[in-house]
Structure formats: C-alpha cells, structure tokens
Design a binder for these strands. Structure first.
Lengths: 306, 306, 306
DNA sequence: ATAGGTTTTGTCAAGCTTTTGTACAT
DNA sequence: ATGTACAAAAGCTTGACAAAACCTAT
C-alpha cells in the first residue's frame, strides 16, 4: 500500500506501467518505437515489451522536447542521441551507482536494502573509497537537497541513523593499537557527527588510535578527556562558525597544550584563524593523510631535538 | 514468587499440576513428549511423570511459539533447542561481572577492552540478556553516578558513543521482514537515544520491523515518516517531561491516527496522561513483550469485526 | 484461529502462517514458487512447505515491487536477485552457531550465504572475535576433517578461496599509516596462507603496517623486500617443519638483521630453536598482542638508550 | 482506434495426504 | 499410564479458468 508510486527503479517495465508513469498512451509508445526507434524494449518469453531504465529516460526526454515545441521526429532524434548509458552490469557496482541506489533505498526508509548496498560496496572497496566516493558525496547531496527543500527532514534523520550505525560499526576497535591518539569531538551544540566519524575512520586507516566523544561536547569535557589520554591531536567539528564563537577563548587555551584541528563547515569560514589551529577544509581522507604526515614530521623533529 | 501452590518441593511436578499451570491438557503434554521429545520427566517409583523446571520452561516456550503461529513440530524443535543453551557454562562471564568490567573499561577510555567484553558477553548470552543484565543496568548506574557528580561528562560521552555503535550494529537489518512496523524517535530536544535503541532491539526480537529516526526529531518529521510507512506503532522517548510539554497538542493529533507510546523518564511522570498514549514505564524487554501482546490483540480484535 | 499476527523469528513457517503474515493467499505463494522460483521452502517429512526467514524477506520484496507497478515476473526476478542476507536473527549470532552455519554453507558451495553469515558476524562483533571464535576454529576443523578424509579437496579449495577473498577484503589498506612495518610471508613450498593473513589482520588491529608477500616465498625475495621496507618484524609461516629445514641457514642470516617470528605448525615443533626467533604457538590474536607489547618495549628501550 | 488473438497472473476445485489435538480402551 | 484410533484443520498436486494486460494488423 505504501510504496505505490513511480520510481526510477530498475527492472523491466511493461508497457502499461511505463504508460502510466510517463503519461503516454501505450499505442503512442509503440508508434514511437516503430517510427523513430526511440526505445528498444526487450521481450518477455511471450513477446511482451519490457522497457529498461534507459528507455524510460528516453521517453522522458522525448516528452520534454515535445513540450518545448519540437516536432516529434526531431524530439525523438534528440532523445535517442542523448545516448543514455544502457543499464550497466548489475554485478559491478560503480561507486556512483552505489550512491544513487543508496540514496534511493534511504529515501524509501528501506534499511535492509541500504545495508545490503553498503555490504556490496565494502566487498570490493576500501573504507576510504566507501567514504570518498559513496558516503561523503551522498551526505553532501543530502545536505543540498535539504536546503532546496527537496527532501523531508524525516528522510534525513533516518539516513543519518542508518549511516551512523554503519560507520560506528566500522569504527569498532579504533581505539586499539600503538599509533598516536586523537581525541574527536563535536563542539557544544553541534549535533552533526557523521563527517567527524568519517574523519576518524580515515585517521584510523592511517594508524591512529581514536577516542571519540561524540556530538555536543562541552569544552570542559574535552579538556578532561584530553588530560587523561594525552592525545597527539584533538579534532573538533562544527558545521557553522556560530558554534565556534562562544568558545573561542577556551579553545585558545586548549590549543596551548594540544595540537588542535577544526573540521566541518566552520573550518572553511576561517572561524578560528591563527592560534596554530589546523583547519581541515578538504575532504576527510586527504586531510587525514595530511595530518598524519604532519604528525610524522613532528615526531621525527621531536626525536631529533632530544 | 510463584510456587505458592502444591509442590513436591524440588522433586518435580506431576502431570496434573503442570497441566493446570501451563493450561495444556495432560493428554497433549504426553503427546508432545512422545512425538517431539519436548520434555523428559523422570518417573516416580510408581511410574508417574515428574517434570523438572527445565521441562516447565520448555512447555512455556512451546506454548509461546505456538501462539506465534509456528507449527507444533517447529515450535517443539525451537523450544528444545533453546532450552539446551539454558544450561550455559556458569564459568563464562557473569553479567554482573561483565557490567563492572565494562564500566571500568569505559571509565578509562579503553575502547578495545570494552568491545572485547561485549564480544565475550554476546558469545554466551542473547541480546536480551545483554540489554537486561548488562547494558541497561550500566546506563542506569552511569546516570546515577552522573547526577551524583561522580563521573565526568567526558566519560559519559565516550561511553555513549561506544555503546551506540555497538547497539546500532546489533540493529543492522532490523527493518527487514514482514512484521508490523514501529517508528521510533526521540522528542525534539532529546539527545539520549540509547534507551530507545535498546527498546527497538527488544521490539525487533519480538518480530517488529523498526524505522528509527534518531534523537531530536521534530514532530513534523515524525508525521511525515509515519505517513510513508504507516506504522502499527509510534514510539517516542524523552528523559524529562520538559520535552513533552511543548508538543503535547501535536502529539494528541498524532495519537488520533497512530498508536502512540512514550518511553523514558517522561513516561514515568505521566507527562502525557490520557489520550490513549501507552506509557512505557517498565524495563524495555518487558514493555516490548507487553506492547506486542497488545498489538496482537488489536489485530485479532480487528479481524473479528470484519 | 486468531493469532494472525506476525511476531517473532524463524524456525520454518508453514504456508498458512506465511500467508497470513504477508497477506498473500497460499495458492499465490505456491504459484510464485512454481512460476518464478521466488522461494525455496524446505519440506517437512510429510512434504509440507517450511519457509525460511530469507523466503519471508523475498516475499516482502516481491510485494513491494508489485506495489511499485512491476509485472510479477519482473518483480520476482528482482526480489530473487536481491541476495537477501540471512534475516537478522539474534539467536544465530553466537560464534559457535556462526561457525557451524559457515561450515554448512561452504560445504554446499553456497558462497552468497557464507558471505551473508560473515557480514552478520561482523555486524555484531569485532574482527578479532571473528577470527578467534569463527574463522580460525573453522579452519582448524576443516584441517582435521581433511586429514580424516571427511572432506573433499574441492570443498577445501572452495572454502579457502572464499575465505581468502574475504580476509584480503578486510586487509585492504593494511599497508597504510604510521605504525611499525611487519613483512609477512609463507616459507618456500608452503601454500597455506590463511593463518598468516589472519595473523596479519590481528597485527593490523594493533596498528602495524603490513607488507604481505603471500604463499611460497623464496628467502631471496624475502630479503629483498626487507631491505626495501626495513620492517620492525618479519613473520614467516609454515605448517610443517619440513619447510623450515632446507632454509634454516638462510633464516639465521636473516635473523641477524631483522626481528624474526615463525608461526604455524612448524613453530609448535620448535623447528627453529634458538637464534632469537620468536615462536608464535598460541592463537594469532594473543600472539599479535604479545608481539606488539614486545615491539613497544623495544621501542621504549631503544629510545632510552639514545 | 478497433478487432481478434495471445500472454500473464491470480484464483479455484477435486482428490488425497499430513499434522495434531482429543478420545477411548486396556 | 500407555497405545491406538479418529477427525478436524491444514497442506499438497494437478489442471483448469478467467480477467486484465498485451500483441499485431487493419
């Protein structure tokens, strides 16, 4: 009863369903096929037409061109030429495909499918790739769609929860080992922690040990934790610089004792200029590499001076 | 607490008594024994069946599985198998011990050790046990220590993040299946979601499908999601009734269309009296069972009227 | 009669119950099975269909796709292809159960199911636990069965390649980062590398960077690689000491320049007594911890003496 | 657009078997 | 208490059917 509406979904539509979705009569669809070769449906064993997603897309284009006033023959020619990528090999999950499928699954509140997609990606890619090519672009896109009002807050909430669980699953054991320690926290008031977790995973892949304090962490808390674990790096995250301003002074104090880094949108705005605070403006994986190189140099330097 | 009636102390129940307690006819009890080997009563000198507590438990499970709709043969197989695990290795990690060790590890920001402890508990116990005997008591204790100022916010933050990751890992796939759907969300402003996740897991163990929206969910969002998935139950969570008051009106509206339940500290305070809102004041596992029974009755009732 | 309600897990539903839960008539369920092979129920002794949780999930997907407007044949194809992971079943995540299921899946050459089982374990446990409680015991058991002639070479090959792929998947990126470097290799003639890969993963979890040379590695190759990466540790593996004898002299030479460790069956036999070669006789995870502690001490010592 | 034939797909019936709770005789 | 018998409920298979959706051709 619920998912009763169209969807770019894959899988071989019959003419009736395509007709309903595109608002074109079956007869006309057949005519376009015969006259202009607009679509190339495969046939069922019994001869029924089965339309691919590429066909669907061409029909959409055709309609659009017609609406623009083109003659049918011209519209068809244009739509055909648009060379829509024929459905790719379903086994070989391209990151972009994975991202789209993930978006689709999460939009429909279909948690199991989302998990299955992530499983498939992880089967052939590293965590870094998953983050760089799938999750982070998806999160970015989600943010954009949200600001454009194209997505409901419900979807955004749901997607966050699923991804948070998955990322924290990947994070299991990230405190282990003998690398340098990084303390990660969102600034007070900041609730968006997915980017920070992603950055933590990237650091982990570089060998760091992670102590993760989560969203909305008071600076006191941060200091307390830092005193106990003596981190080589403290990473803070905030989406807007509003989060930064109220605590600038406290952060300067902290920066005096620990290497501090700031990520998220706030960093891009230069909210914490100077003060020796590292600004993480690039993508998490690249920044994790950079930070690691710095730490290595520092260690080497430190040893030399000893 | 229970044995207030005829009892040949630990010698074992006779068939008549077991029949009365379990609500199963003696003939049927014998049939189950003969056909499925469900129970293994010892015999009195004169040949009467004497049932052990383990037998009683198996009969209870059998009844439960039957009520769930399983075929007798299947129900018996499950009940027998489950009871085997009952006699678990007592040497292996007592829940109370696990809780203390866990508390210690988390206090020290020692994530790997905490994970290892949880691994060990899960190796010998069910998820229900983990929740009931380890995690929920620990969370409760953490809360208490926090109000007494005995624990730093940093520890609480850190512990929450570790446990959240772990619980969400257990939750993977909880949207799968054919059971009724429950939508779970924290009220606006509420950030504590661990209890709610635990409740979701308990519901899942009862066969529900879960759509989880996470902390700090606006009521609009909740309505939006509910419209899409048409849940049989909407579960809200809030620690204090401060979260409830601002949205009471909106919740009444929601309650008109969906079965609503409220958990967390707010429920205990009767923050949402009347309005047909279920108040979840007990422990998550017990409440999940109760809610499930109610849903079953409702479904049965609905059918009768058809 | 009344309990038409969903609820709880698996155990093999009969057609009536599945029909009630899914809202699909028994006749239709049989038709879907006959026409599209959508479900694969096992049969009771008497021939009644018993549906698995995976079947249940496929039926749900089928319904969903139908609601989206797909033709039945197409919907079924999609639902079947979806390679549903074993439905989240809290009972089945005990490591011992997982191991048995894994063994069963691999014995039947059922790769997707094996992967799903591994996914499920990883969802709730750490990699260390997966290795210690599932994979290594399974490999051990496989070895035993093989020596007893209870398993075919084909099965052993199949299982090895599936697990190798999976372990190497987990290993992805293990050369990255800033931990100490360990070079791993099987001795000349030795083909069994799964144990060594597992050990590599355990080391990685402790923060090491891994350079993996694979099975059947000539000592020259090993020396060459070592010269280039200057490892803090060189780990060799061999099942029997036959592999060790021919190269003892060369190894002594190597041991003079690098910290050497020997694992696998050969280690247990003391094949390389003395020479400062570490013998890894315990389980990989424990040994990885031990080796890491040694490395840490060495580093600390080295620093002090500088 | 209509006509006439085909395919797809949900449903039903008949006749027989299995499962399972209860009853009865020893 | 045991063992056998029995009957209602639930399932199985085969085969058929009809409405809806599609096809081609005019």
């Amino acid at each position: 009863m619920l998912y009763n509406f169209p969807m770019t979904d894959d899988g071989g539509l019959r003419i009736g369903e395509l007709s309903r979705r595109a608002g074109i009569s079956p007869a006309l669809l057949r005519a376009w096929e015969r006259r202009y070769g607009l679509v190339h449906p495969t046939r069922s064993a019994g001869g029924l037409r089965l339309y691919s997603p590429a066909d669907v897309e061409r029909v959409r284009l055709m309609r659009q061109h017609l609406a623009e006033g083109l003659a049918a023959a011209e519209a068809a020619a244009l739509a055909s030429r648009a060379a829509v990528g024929e459905a790719a090999d379903p086994a070989a999950l391209h990151p972009a495909t994975a991202r789209d499928e993930l978006a689709d699954a999460l939009d429909r509140f279909d948690e199991p499918r989302a998990q299955a997609i992530l499983d498939r990606v992880l089967a052939v890619a590293t965590v870094d790739t998953l983050l760089t090519d799938v999750l982070l672009p998806y999160l970015h896109e989600l943010g954009e769609r949200w600001t454009r009002g194209e997505t409901s807050v419900a979807q955004e909430h749901f997607a966050s929860s699923v991804l948070r669980g998955r990322l924290l699953g990947l994070a299991r054991g990230w405190g282990q080992g003998l690398g340098p320690v990084a303390v990660l926290a969102c600034l007070p008031g900041e609730q968006h922690d997915l980017g920070l977790i992603a950055f933590g995973l990237a650091l982990r892949a570089q060998g760091w040990r992670i102590v993760y304090l989560g969203p909305d962490t008071p600076i006191d808390t941060l200091e307390d934790a830092s005193r106990r674990v003596e981190p080589s790096l403290v990473v803070l995250s905030a989406v807007t610089d509003e989060r930064v301003r109220p605590v600038v002074e406290q952060l300067r104090g902290l920066a005096a004792r620990y290497r501090l880094a700031l990520g998220g949108g706030a960093a891009a705005n230069g909210a914490l200029a100077a003060g020796g605070v590292l600004e993480l403006t690039g993508d998490p994986i690249a920044e994790a590499t950079r930070v690691t190189a710095l730490a290595r140099d520092a260690a080497a330097g430190g040893e030399e001076t000893e």
